[in-house]
Design a protein around this nucleic acid. Structure first.
Lengths: 342, 342
DNA sequence: ATGAAAGCGCTAACAT
DNA sequence: ATGTTAGCGCTTTCAT
């Protein structure tokens, strides 16, 4: 069933059917209804490929993200896929998904696949994909020459056609650390994932908070780790074995905070009396942990909503900011109770 | 830049360029190289829409799943998106993703969108989407008239063009319950999510295990709940308040098991001495809980690998089984230690 | 307001 | 082995 069949059945030309299909105003109400009736009767839907060929778009956005099953993947961006998809669908865009591992080739191939399919825009979730090394970002820069690229929680500034929407993780980490300091903690360990833009910002925020309190930044209090209970336990044990004090802990992901929580509890450290802990992401985990975890909410859902809104704007040819930032919020639970306000 | 431009630059016809592009054997090595050189020089990639229009396929599979951010969503199928996507990409298929809520209309619209885009196949993750009510499945049945539909952990049998791949959750639940019984538990509570095909199968497995041990199935031991610590706590408290015994617990999701674990620990019930617990999904959570959770692994990754392998087979016109099943495995941890084997 | 016809860029059948 | 050409199904410009 094609537009031609419909036109014959309705005794009009294909152009008229096309007009009806596209809501063109230049159609008499009576012909419109006549055509619509035939379309409905035959359950006709126009061929998307032919449409795409003519219009040079199929209203599709490519989404690149780390495979959610990857154990090294930052879990905090997990939900972004769903949020972005939902918002795109509301704007009548379909989403082509590419979940890839920590592999440059896969990243490049995925971006090439998106370009081949002539997506209207590319959304890249997470700063993992942005390398410090310029050559590694070449495929992104190339893509941006033809297709707008949106980095969610990434950073690649001052490049035409590349847009960033992100959470202010530096500020989030700053306020989390400040809250620990205000609760009385002075020896605050920091646990973080392998280096990405977001992680670097969080480290910066932690350091700035200490400085603002007139405290020294001690590198031996900053640990890079994976969310593995044994690994975190070993780090805490060796830290304490060195005779280093510990009365606060800030982790850049809830996972890491929970590993630390388990180790501390196992050692008989009382929480929050002897040790206060703040995680990051405000994930489900923070509710399931014992005691329940105070965590920084980096507002992924608003971030995704904003991203799609701006993306659609930009595609409509409107002026669009290159960098857009949302704030993080601290959600207080048991591992660092909310401060009393008068 | 089109195939015509390339053909002119290489002094050949468009057909030859097309042949080179598609790896057709009927091209001399020298012309192939000549054409390839021009293609590379100009960084040419053929227009996917035009290709799709001619071939009536863009090698795309539509994936329908519950929005991962939905708090009521069964989390155990979360990773399926990534696994399916990865396998499809390996077979050179792109994935159109539709994450929807618990809404019939969204489901219908998404399936319609897939059909409009003429996907080669539809994959539906989770049995949530399959209703007991036949009219609610109408859009799936309609879709199957033109496009193969694959249900991952769903059930809709004996319908042409609908295929099911699933984990044997009945058997998984049976063996989990059996393991609890063999550990000495006699009063085993069951916590489950809202009814889906998988959940029903798990309940069945639980009941059959009790029966196999000559024990009665007591409905007052079976609770439907959401993964909310307070809700589960209330259910356990009222259960115990009724004077009902409790020395074992089987939950159809790790989330539920962990909520129960928290409540039990808070009441001073010792685990695993007084209460043994088995969860389901073998999720990350099972490692982060205290004590670490014994859980049924429902082998989502192999399931997804199998699904895509069969799907591709079927698209190639090969005979393909309608229902394919993988087994579940019990992963023993602290809440139900592994039995000693001699 | 409606129709005729020219693309859009590729594939494949057919011709050489 | 290579070229010619007729579609694929839609949108849109230009006539009427």
């Amino acid at each position: 069933m094609t537009i031609h069949d419909i036109s014959k059945l309705a005794n009009v030309s294909v152009a008229t059917v096309s007009r009806v299909l596209n809501g063109n105003a230049n159609v008499t109400e009576s012909t419109r209804e006549k055509v619509m009736a035939v379309i409905r009767e035959n359950n006709f839907t126009p061929n998307a490929f032919a449409r795409g060929l003519g219009l040079d778009t199929m209203r599709t956005v490519g989404i690149l993200c780390v495979d959610p099953a990857d154990p090294d993947a930052c879990p905090s961006l997990q939900f972004a896929i769903g949020y972005l998809q939902r918002e795109l669908r509301r704007q009548d865009f379909d989403s082509l998904l590419y979940c890839v591992g920590y592999d440059m080739q896969e990243k490049e191939r995925s971006i090439q696949a998106m370009l081949n399919r002539r997506v209207d825009a590319i959304v890249i979730i997470g700063s993992f994909f942005i390398e410090n090394n310029a050559t590694n970002n070449l495929c992104i820069l190339n893509a941006a020459q033809t297709t707008p690229v949106w980095l969610v929680n990434g950073n690649l500034e001052n490049i035409p056609n590349i847009f960033c929407t992100r959470c202010d993780d530096r500020d989030g980490a700053y306020r989390a650390t400040k809250a620990l300091l205000e609760s009385g903690s002075r020896d605050i360990m920091m646990l973080h994932y392998a280096s990405t833009y977001s992680e670097q910002q969080k480290i910066l925020g932690y350091q700035q908070a200490l400085q603002a309190f007139g405290l020294p930044v001690r590198d031996e209090y900053i640990y890079e780790t994976t969310p593995d209970v044994q690994e975190v336990e070993a780090k805490i044990n060796s830290h304490l074995a060195k005779g280093l004090a510990l009365d606060g802990l800030f982790a850049t992901e809830d996972e890491l905070a929970i590993c630390a929580l388990k180790s501390a509890t196992a050692r008989g450290i009382s929480i929050p009396e002897q040790l206060r802990v703040v995680g990051y992401s405000n994930s489900k985990l923070s509710l399931f942990s014992t005691p329940e975890l105070t965590s920084v909410d980096h507002n992924i859902e608003p971030l995704c909503v904003t991203t799609v809104a701006l993306l659609v704007n930009q595609l409509r040819g409107m002026k669009t900011p290159t960098v857009t930032t949302v704030m993080a919020d601290i959600v207080y639970r048991k591992t660092l109770p909310a401060p009393h306000r008068n």
